[in-house]
């Protein structure tokens, strides 16, 4: 496979992944709406969307990650082999730190992806996660994703929040190079658009960092200060008084009166 084809693979898989993270961020930010919003959204993704669509998305993302990582490893090996003897003195003229640390930021994110899937998708890190339940307007039981997010980022697991925020900084750094670079690799950039896309890529990275990191930050702020951005109190109290067997049903404040559930849920 020629060097350029490898770059196309990096660019296209990178495009898929960087577009996905934006959609994911928008989905996550629903946590700042009443709890039923994100719970209904989670229910929609898992139960109302045809399974073919959900698994189609999952397979595409998995394929993109595998191709992106596998090709990156190949490129890295070839690039190292292309300069068997290094310089005694190294200097950099224009390359940005983001460009030079792509592999490093990528490795942090790979570790993050593995942990994140175990954490919130497989839910194998905390036994409580599978027990958080809530009701929709029709009185049906469904998973309480809102409570999962709050508990997962609570101060008891401050190191998890720290890892999430560090990973999101890596994501921002990675994309501040990658989002512009993918257009170059596909030949869809020129001198004028190099500056525009570089600026857009930096902006994109910052937006994603703020968007994603705001959630663990908001959980800690709500838990530790009087500023109630999220309803941490009922969730954490529910966990404290949990009998280790029955589902944890959180009574959110004034839930029925203040949060009209979006979308009527039927089986």
């Amino acid at each position: 496979m020629s060097s350029l084809v490898k770059k196309y693979i990096m660019a296209i898989s990178g495009f898929v992944l960087s577009a996905f993270v934006f959609v994911h961020m928008i989905g996550n930010l629903q946590v700042f709406m009443p709890p039923s919003a994100i719970n209904d959204y989670a229910y929609f993704l898992h139960h109302m969307l045809p399974w073919e669509v959900l698994w189609g998305f999952r397979f595409t993302l998995l394929a993109a990650v595998v191709l992106h990582v596998w090709t990156a490893i190949q490129l890295k090996i070839e690039n190292a082999a292309a300069r068997p003897q290094s310089y005694q003195v190294n200097a950099s003229v224009v390359a940005t730190p983001a460009a030079r640390y792509m592999a490093f930021s990528g490795m942090i994110m790979l570790a993050f992806i593995v942990f994140h899937i175990l954490h919130y998708t497989v839910r194998s890190t905390h036994p409580e996660f599978k027990m958080f339940m809530t009701m929709n307007d029709d009185g049906e039981k469904m998973f309480d994703a809102y409570a999962m997010m709050i508990y997962g980022f609570s101060s008891e697991f401050w190191y998890v929040s720290a890892f999430y925020i560090i990973s999101m900084a890596s994501l921002a750094l990675h994309l501040s190079h990658g989002v512009s670079s993918m257009f170059q690799s596909l030949g869809l950039r020129n001198e004028l658009w190099r500056y525009r896309l570089n600026a857009f890529a930096a902006f994109y990275g910052i937006v994603l960092f703020i968007g994603f990191s705001s959630i663990p930050a908001a959980v800690l702020i709500s838990e530790k200060t009087g500023v109630q951005l999220l309803q941490t109190k009922p969730v954490l109290e529910g966990v404290k008084s949990w009998d280790k067997k029955s589902p944890i049903i959180t009574n959110y404040e004034n839930c029925l009166s203040c949060c009209p559930s979006s979308g009527k849920v039927t089986k």
Binding site: S3, A95, A99, R100, S180
Partner: peptide, 8 residues
Amino acid sequence: GNCTNYGE
């Protein structure tokens, strides 16, 4: 090696 768009 392969181009990774450093710009050096």
